[in-house]
Amino acid sequence: MEKIYTRPNALNKSVSGYCPGCMHSTITKITAQVIDELGIGERTVCVLPVGCGTLGALYWNLDMVISAHGRAPAVATGVKRVSPDSVVFTYQGDGDLASIGLSEIMHAANRGENYTVLFINNSIYGMTGGQMAPTTLVGQKTTTTPGGRNPDTDGFPMKMAELIAQLTSPVYVARFAVNTPAYINKAKEGIRKAFQNQLDGKGFSLVEILSNCPTTWGMSPIDTLSYINDNTLAEFPLGVFKDREEEQS
């Protein structure tokens, strides 16, 4: 019989410690599938953030570097510049990338570093227990916005894909979701493209993936799917914000 589904080689056999229903598992899986399908595992370096994504250190079957909080794009710059044959990607959450690491991501994107950024945006700080992130929705309750995010004092959700797409250097900037099977398939193709661009030496690609956090959102996993549909997608529209390939064709 033909084997049509198996655990990707880019992941080890550990049992995931992500919370039940957390989409990190899905995003990690489809990324690992892409790495397998492109046949690049043995030369890939995963640069991990600080946040829930750091747990990836327990699951990726890849060479890895764990960064200081927010600094993954700077660390990845160092790795890729001295080892250009390595395939380098960062895997960062929204606190890591959009708050403390805002400077590092903007400047790596602006330099057009030839690597891939996976930005997992679940609108909250998961690892530290559910504080407000730059991407928290207006009105969303967190442990540091008990009355809901108030734009008068807390500002509005930051749209990183749109911000980065304004820069000249990036070659591919897109936002996907993974709360339906169709969205998962699209996200996987976006991740594939972001890696392929690097393999082709084209430059900086960023894929933002809208995710959930059942634990700190205080919802059952199934309810987070409709929450994303009804609320997150209204604030963070899906789409390709920049694709140099299409601009040129």
């Binding site: 960064s67 600094r71 700077a74 660390v75 710059t77 160092g78 510049r81 080892s83 590092e104 330099r111």
Partner: peptide
């Protein structure tokens, strides 16, 4: 070799962390 003007001291030292992690 490679020279990068980092966007900050913080970024620069973390670039060094990355380069050193890759064995350079």
């Amino acid at each position: 070799g490679t020279f990068v003007q980092g966007e900050s001291e913080v970024a620069s030292v973390n670039m060094v962390y990355g380069a050193a992690a890759a064995g350079t």
